[in-house]
Design a protein around this nucleic acid. Sequence first.
DNA 1: CAAATATACCTCAGAAATTGATATATCAAA
DNA 2: TTTGATATATCAATTTCTGAGGTATATTTG
Lengths: 112, 112
Amino acid sequence: MNNSQLYKGSLSLIILKLLEENKRMYGYEMTQKVKEQTGGELVINEGALYPALHKLEADGLLTVAVEQVGNRPRKYYSLTEKGEAETINRLEELTEFVKHMQLLLNPKLSLG
Amino acid sequence: MNNSQLYKGSLSLIILKLLEENKRMYGYEMTQKVKEQTGGELVINEGALYPALHKLEADGLLTVAVEQVGNRPRKYYSLTEKGEAETINRLEELTEFVKHMQLLLNPKLSLG
DNA sequence: CAAATATACCTCAGAAATTGATATATCAAA
DNA sequence: TTTGATATATCAATTTCTGAGGTATATTTG
């Protein structure tokens, strides 16, 4: 994530949301998907991604299944039930937050 | 700020924006203003506020004027020119970021 | 075929920001 | 007179990210 000081803490939500839509993804795939979907403007740093994945797993929001692809192992992550519920909660939290920011910064932010 | 993991890093922008609108404010006033403008839903933690104010000051974005009110000193903060420019930049950055989050999380976020 | 690039995982030191606790002190109102 | 609001501030611990580095396989291209 190259967007400096602000916006910290949104990475885990991005991961959760990606998995909500795609069911099964591996880390590298996530970095590429985000790059692609934002026209290369949002780049996930792997030094942030892997620790975040491990934390989400430790928190019981993700499960991992290792698969051998060709000669190398690949770790597919999926949401647990807890993870699905948490994703919904965090999206609501974000919506709330945007609403609050809108109240404070008025001009440009609104809900669709 | 009690709104958990996400949304870190937005505090300094909130401060800048408050000062853009109000010219002169002191710390405690900011916490009350934010509480008021968000119906009590966004609460600025003073343990975050004061370090943030000091950092913005150290970065040359704010100036301070101490005034004696009754028996106690009060610190009024204002934007410097640099601070005004920075406020505009950071608001643009936020707009960009919301745009990117919108691309990733699709459903509920949009620009006004 | 060799070299470069892409894929794919990972860790770690240091930086930055926040939480939650704690401290101090004034002042108004019950 | 003591509670609660006003007003400032610091600090340890925690979380999170950046930027760098490390390992290894697979594919493309000159």
